[in-house]
Design a protein around this nucleic acid. Structure first.
Length: 572
DNA sequence: CCAGTATTAAAGTTCTCAAC
DNA sequence: GTTGAGAACTTTAATACTGG
């Protein structure tokens, strides 16, 4: 009987033992999984730590704040995301795009004057380590705390004055405002424990109510974006971007980081593989996130360069269609106008611009913009031939001609006039340069006395057949072009006279003057004579209109009729 | 005395015209 | 269309005068 009674006991014990073994095996397998995960995460952290130490070296040599910012942008979000492989989307994306709680809004505002990227990175890491990560990741949290200490050390390094790489200096003169005297704070009332608890509860309730209201507003907004998406097409995110980020569109684009560059690369590959429909980037990122961590630094750099090239191509490549070009012009004009008006408001400026085409393939009338219409009216009054239609047309014609003036000139007369003007301008510029006198003016008639002896310089390499004012040279193009070339390549130039050369030149000049070989400026015909009183002069001037034969009256200067060849360039 | 103004001549530039 | 001559026009410098 004992045997029969003990046998079932043994069987029960064996079954219980078997169950216990199964449970233990099950727990062990879970623990093994945890260990594998832990090892995996520790490997990733070591990799990040190595990169961090490398950045320490870089920071000692380069712009520390910039490098640190780039590092945090490139590495930290990916690191945070890596610790939540089960999350439906990367944590960094979720953190940045999820409806912000009021407390998060406050913290972001308070950190905007700190090194923002690092602050946010540290807070992200901190929040992850403190709350979200479960028991198996306790070791990871410890390593996180070490990392955080390293990051904080970086912050101190960067913010210490002797490590500043670039210093912006404010204005030398500041406007001194009346200092604000802070009011003396009242002494806090003595409250009992119950009263404090009640106040705390009241504040919490108020905050919860506010959070609920804001959440409601955000949910409504998201619902509206979905409604717009259904009604007008396009993704709902597009409308959220329109609502929240429109003002940011004028800002410069962000520097591409390695994660974004890799994302761009895999999306491009996927889209090229399946022409049918564009792939979902978030899904792609989750599927291939392990590939990202296996990349070498060279591959990171390669992907970043690829993205930079792509952006550059988008911003500067030739638009192939008329519509694309027109849209581009419209967009850029709108942005320029916005920027100028912003400057006008913020700084106090007025401005105008003219945009015109440089290719006959693109059809667009020259566009002018004035922040103030009166500027155009004033210029039209004060400047002869300020006609924006003509100026725009001339600028356009010049640009289309490849910015080569000679291509625009129809005949040798115009070409000669242009070459003479160029010669005059360049000789005047040379004279100003060698004399150091910004008001020096070339004198061809009295060149010997007014230029050579006055400034102790001489002009060598003059190629024209005779020495005279360029205006009086022949309009033949070839010799004028030869002279201009000589001036441009330095063969024709001013040179300083040595003292003995100057003495010789001076003696020769004096001799010529004595011999009457140098034409002197005529003596005024009224020199030494008393003139009529001013009142009488003014009176006779006022009568000039009725007495045009009065030779004592200075003839009124006639304005040019403006019918010359230069105006005809507009018709090109 | 000196700054401002008016007048004039000379220098420099642009335009017209006629010959080729 | 090109070229040269000269007229027409503008700019600059020199000179003289006025009035504070």
């Amino acid at each position: 009987m004992q045997t029969t009674s003990s046998q079932p006991d043994d069987e029960a014990a064996e079954a219980a033992l078997s169950t216990r073994i199964t449970e233990l095996e099950h727990q062990l397998s879970h623990r093994n999984d945890d260990v594998v995960k832990l090892e995996h995460d520790i490997t990733k952290l070591r990799k990040v730590l190595r990169q961090t130490m490398k950045h320490v070296k870089n920071l000692e040599e380069a712009n520390k704040s910039e490098a640190l910012s780039q590092w945090s942008r490139a590495s930290t979000p990916a690191l945070v995301d890596s610790l939540h492989p089960s999350s439906p989307r990367p944590l960094s994306t979720a953190l940045s795009t999820a409806p912000s709680s009021p407390s998060r809004v406050r913290s972001s505002v308070s950190k905007q004057y700190a090194p923002s990227s690092m602050s946010s990175a540290v807070s992200s890491v901190s929040s992850v380590s403190a709350s979200s990560i479960g028991h198996p990741f306790r070791h990871v949290c410890r390593i996180y705390s070490i990392l955080r200490r390293i990051i904080l050390t970086f912050l101190l390094l960067v913010n210490t004055p002797q490590h500043m790489a670039a210093v912006s200096v404010g204005p030398m003169i500041g406007i001194s405002a009346k200092p604000t005297v802070s009011a003396k704070r009242c002494t806090a009332p003595a409250l009992s424990y119950e009263e404090r608890t009640a106040i705390t509860k009241k504040n919490h309730d108020k905050q919860a109510e506010l959070d609920a209201e804001i959440k409601q507003w955000f949910d409504d907004t998201v619902a509206l974006s979905k409604h717009l998406s259904d009604k007008f097409g396009k993704n709902a995110d597009y409308y959220l971007n329109q609502m929240f980020s429109d003002a940011l569109k004028l800002r410069n684009s962000r520097q591409p980081n390695a994660y974004n560059a890799w994302s761009h690369h895999i999306a491009k590959e996927a889209n090229e593989a399946s022409q049918a429909s564009p792939s979902n980037l978030l899904n792609l990122q989750q599927e291939k996130i392990d590939d990202y961590y296996d990349l070498t630094e060279e591959q990171w750099e390669q992907y970043v360069n690829e993205l930079v090239d792509q952006r550059q191509s988008q911003s500067t490549s030739l638009r192939t269609t008329q519509r694309g070009r027109t849209q581009d012009v419209n967009n850029i004009c709108g942005k320029i106008v916005d920027l100028l008006l912003g400057l006008k408001q913020c700084v106090g400026i007025e401005a105008f611009f003219c945009i015109f085409r440089n290719s006959p393939d693109f059809h667009m009338s020259p566009r002018w913009y004035f922040t103030l219409e009166q500027i155009n009216q004033y210029l039209a009054t004060m400047i002869r031939r300020w006609e924006i239609d003509k100026i725009g047309a001339m600028a356009e014609a010049f640009a289309i001609a490849g910015c080569d003036y000679m291509n625009l000139l129809r005949n040798s007369k115009l070409k000669g006039a242009f070459l003479k003007a160029s010669i005059r301008n360049k000789i005047n510029a040379m004279l100003i340069k060698i004399t150091g006198n910004s008001k020096a003016v070339m004198n061809y008639t009295s060149f010997e006395s007014e230029i050579v002896l006055r400034y102790q310089i001489q002009l060598i390499g003059w190629t024209a057949d005779k020495w005279t004012n360029p205006s009086k040279l022949s309009n033949a193009v070839a010799p004028l072009q030869q002279l201009l070339d000589a001036i441009e390549n330095g063969a024709c130039r001013f040179e300083r006279l040595a003292s003995h050369e100057f003495t010789t030149q001076k003696k020769k000049y004096d001799k010529d003057v004595a011999a009457g070989r140098v034409a002197q400026r005529k003596v005024r015909k009224d020199a030494g004579q008393k003139r009529a009183p001013k009142a009488r002069v003014a009176e006779s001037s006022s009568d000039s209109g009725s007495d045009s034969n009065n030779e004592s009256i200075h003839p009124s200067k006639r304005s040019r009729t403006g019918t010359g060849d230069v105006d005809e360039i507009v018709a090109v």
